[in-house]
Design a protein around this nucleic acid. Structure first.
Lengths: 213, 213
DNA sequence: AGGTGTGAACACTTTCACAGCA
DNA sequence: TGCTGTGAAAGTGTTCACACCT
């Protein structure tokens, strides 16, 4: 039933859903693959291929029912139920993330915030109180945390990742610029800002060449 | 001379460079494609293919000279010279970025910080003073800014992006969850944290299926 | 032997084109 | 007629295998 879905497809599904939600609030009832493609910055054929991997959600001659497709996409992406998330590291990036309202809106509930800094422990931080990291395993296990956001210095990232996995975490969003070594059943997504800037630098440096030809 | 380089290749080059720099400080003189691959989480053949697109940097039977390859990679990625960067938006994410020391280390100098909040304007913020956004175009032009980091609410992102482009910016690192419409010569890299979490949710939701078969 | 550089094979993704249903 | 769903074609990225240099 699930014949491997590529990462790029998943990213696009995510984008489609956002577009649907925007249109839904405008009250339209249906959307064509062409319109979706334009908004998402891809092609109509791509949209149809992506969606057809999971079922036939459209009506020929009409397009896709907005609300219906939205529900399906949420189900496909695994957003049909809330996810319990731990934020590990309440430094600059960590607190920035905590203030981000979109997470909760999409069903990602940050139920634990951990930090090693004694000054931060006990501090209220956006609905939650910062806890120490000594009992990380127990806390994450008790709170039934499934996802962890790792916003800690590179030196301690690997250690904390393993401890989180021990506590039952199966997915990690990693902001530390290191390649985490985790068991195969654990999913990791890396966010490396320096790498993104380097990609920009590369593109701009080689722009002249591309234009020629 | 430059026959299109894929985005994944650029990301890997970035990783290779980081590994080289780490090894360089340990004082080793040479590294094999196999060792580089292991550290980078890819294959030896992939490493050689990636590098061979830009030249022959290795010595058969020995491997790649550490320092030499590092210099080449920096040159390839466009890190041979510093980049002047503007941070647009000094909110939570903006200030988190500003505190990130790795940017400067890699040659990305944040020379301007802009925000619309009157309370923030004039405030010192990590070596820089926050300026108002009214004269964005003039300021960015005067400071010869080439890259912009957009850390503002989604509603104003598109407008500020265009204004930055008008001021001569050719690359944008965008944190707002919107698809920016910019002229074709402008490079955009998006960082959408909700999307990353959704990718994790998808993977975990479909994990059972994958293991079967 | 040891390890790079590279064409050829393979796998995966995107685009095309059109049959088929409303 | 309009737009979806999909096999087949084209395009892109990765892996293999081996010639070749030290």
């Amino acid at each position: 039933m699930s014949p491997k879905v590529s990462d790029s497809t998943v990213r696009r599904l995510s984008r489609y859903l956002k577009i649907l939600e925007a249109r839904c609030s405008e009250g339209a009832g249906t959307i064509s693959s062409d319109a979706l493609a334009t908004d998402a910055g891809t092609t109509a054929a791509q949209v149809r291929k992506d969606l057809s991997q999971f079922g036939s959600f459209g009506k020929r001659g009409q397009g896709y029912p907005l609300e219906d497709l939205g529900t399906h996409l949420r189900e496909i992406l695994g957003l049909g139920r809330p996810w319990r998330v731990a934020l590990i590291g309440a430094g600059r990036i960590g607190t920035a993330i905590l203030g981000y309202p979109d997470f909760r809106r999409k069903g990602f509930e940050i139920v634990v915030v951990l930090d090693e800094d004694p000054d931060k422990i006990g501090t209220p931080c956006c609905h939650t109180i910062v806890q120490g990291a000594e009992h990380l395993e127990q806390t994450l296990y008790d709170e039934e945390v499934e996802l962890a956001i790792l916003a800690v210095p590179a030196e301690v990232a690997q250690d904390l990742a393993i401890r989180a996995v021990t506590a039952g975490v199966r997915g990690i969003l990693n902001f530390a610029p290191v390649r985490l070594r985790v068991p195969p059943h654990v999913a990791v997504q890396n966010v490396d800002l320096v790498m993104e800037l380097e990609a920009l630098a590369f593109e701009l440096t080689h722009a002249r060449d591309d234009e020629a030809g």
